[in-house]
Design a protein around this nucleic acid. Structure first.
Lengths: 338, 338
DNA sequence: GTCTGGCACTCAGCACAGCAGAGTGCCAGC
DNA sequence: GCTGGCACTCTGCTGTGCTGAGTGCCAGAC
């Protein structure tokens, strides 16, 4: 077990290293923090912390830097979540309030988060499966070609073309549109498959094929691969990664380009509460020198999607966590209003 | 005027420099290209080319590298557009054909272009003003709250909330929807303002306020700031910029994050034909060491938007131009089919 | 007039050595 | 258990010298 003071030393090392980006030595520590002991004592504590794997030396005659394990302890036990200042809160609200549609909300959120944390921001669009259907629209483009538009309560609009096996009359179209909406409007998207299951049966034989095709297309929008969308921003902040950024930036950029990787990354995060994944805790190799702070957001109690930031493991955890949490809350509010 | 051989020397320098990323000297040139003259002669030609500002020396005892002016001459006079191989064409088609909606088309295009050119790709969404209205949908969300959805022939779906000054009945809503569509469906978006101008007059006094609000919202979607959208990808390719990439990457990433900058960049390009802007020809300072290759794309004769790539001035112009042109053509086809 | 071989010159890049400074571990003493 | 002192280590910086690629120029050949 680590003594109180040793934890204090670890906290001081993390704080200094995050600030200066340079290995911190025993002398500098005693000068910058009121530890009440001499450098020699701190050195002993450091040796113990290193023994336990919380800190490491880049080379023999250098100071110490925190390891992933050290950051983990810091985040779990030593750091709180720093609340934002009033000015910051007002800025968030002002910035998000002008959004005209969902794309705009997501876009603004990404920029806001990137600016606030000075890191790379990732925002997932509200998941279809966790949303409610607001309206389904069917338009006739050609005798045997329809357009299907689905609108959710979270503001997502999905749109698909449907090639019908047979021409489909205007009355049948109006009929299908009405019946479809009466069944699914206001219901959870994930329930739609069951709700429409027996719909083709109630149509004339000639039209059943088309109705089935329409329903199949509707259900296809729920396929995981295409249904999940996200937006990233603030990649320019990657240049503030540290002096070794040229080496690190490439795998990170590559990982960020892969939607699949990012979705998995956010998917691994807890559904409720904030998740912090530090360095090697991230499964993806390219992100081994980054930390990911993510949290779910939603209009009501349940999260409809996640957002977060990706930054160097050497980041200001309390500040970042505060910003991420605050932004998630405001986005939730905005979504609830729309 | 430059002699034939001097142009040949310039071409050789550009090609070698693009390939090796290192200043090219007279000896290496004669070895790698059949110029039929000795290094000494090439040196004289190089001196002349430098005098005219087409090439430059990083330092006294180094080879030459092309200047922006040199690349300009190369692109205008010495290089053609390299057509893609059959395999590449087939790959493009396969890759784009699976797209389910416009977002998907744009997303796939960005990835495709980035992969093909190994540079940063930028794709603009089809402009609303240059598209045709396919359908306008009005939904009632609450007694005095509507949702307006506009769908264009290029697959864009814009969606806005409308807060009505007074409650608006279902019949009036159906009426407005029908009249609105009969006026604007199939017409160019840019003509919409005139087409709906006198619409409020034909409604009952109580409803005129709401109708006007709906129309105002409809016209707002055309406001330039929000109507233009774009997607970028392949930023990981920035790491292949050259050995000085750490210095260059930051301003470029910053510029790429600014939608406004990118839109201006694409906006400056010619409406028809391919545009190549080299180095300092780009107005934005951060992009002074990049070249931008862009071209319009569209379903018919007219371009509805632009796409392009951003890369180091030291790029394979013929290959890049070939890829950009080919992708634009295929995207146009895809849009025409939908 | 144009091209060529020869020659002296320049300068970046690398390797090597020496030095200064920050930081450590350890130990004896309080 | 804490502290001051001390010897030691190792990075990073600076200065020197060398090598090699590449140049400009000139006199002579075609």
């Amino acid at each position: 077990m680590l003594s109180e003071r040793r934890l204090e030393v670890l906290r001081a090392i993390v704080q200094d290293y995050v600030g200066t980006e340079e290995p911190v030595g025993s002398k500098a520590l005693t000068e910058r923090h009121r530890l009440g002991v001499s450098p020699a004592t701190v050195r002993n504590d450091m040796a113990a912390l290193e023994e336990e794997g919380f800190i490491a030396q880049p080379h023999t005659s250098a100071g110490r830097i925190p390891t992933d394990k050290g950051y983990r302890l810091f985040v779990d036990k030593l750091a709180g979540v720093k609340p934002l200042s009033g000015a910051e809160r007002r800025a968030i609200q002002n910035f998000l309030d002008g959004a005209v549609d969902l794309d705009d909300v997501v876009g603004r959120t990404v920029r806001l988060l990137a600016q606030l944390t000075r890191q790379v921001a990732v925002v997932q669009y509200p998941s279809l499966t966790r949303s409610t259907v607001r309206h389904v629209e069917l338009l006739s483009l050609a005798p045997a070609r329809l357009m299907l538009v689905v609108i959710t309560d979270t503001g997502r609009v999905e749109q698909r073309h449907v090639d019908c096996p047979a021409p489909f009359g205007e009355t049948a179209l109006a009929d299908l549109r009405a019946r479809l909406n009466s069944r699914v409007a206001g219901r959870r998207f994930s329930d739609v498959p069951q709700l429409v299951q027996d719909l083709p049966e109630s149509f004339e034989t000639d039209d059943r094929g088309t109705v089935s095709t329409v329903l199949a297309t509707l259900l296809e929008t729920l396929v995981e691969e295409t249904e999940e969308r996200l937006m990233i921003g603030g990649t320019a902040n990657l240049t503030r990664f540290g002096h070794d950024f040229p080496l690190v930036i490439r795998p990170v950029l590559e990982a960020l380009e892969e939607q699949v990787v990012l979705l998995k990354l956010l998917g691994e995060a807890k559904d409720s509460g904030m998740t912090v994944r530090i360095g090697h805790e991230n499964a993806h190799e390219g992100l081994n020198s980054t930390s990911v702070v993510s949290v779910g957001y939603g209009s009501g109690g349940e999260a409809v999607a996640k957002l977060g930031v990706v930054g160097p493991t050497r980041m200001d955890y309390p500040g970042t966590m505060g910003a991420v949490r605050a932004v998630a809350r405001y986005v939730g509010q905005i979504l609830a209003e729309s």
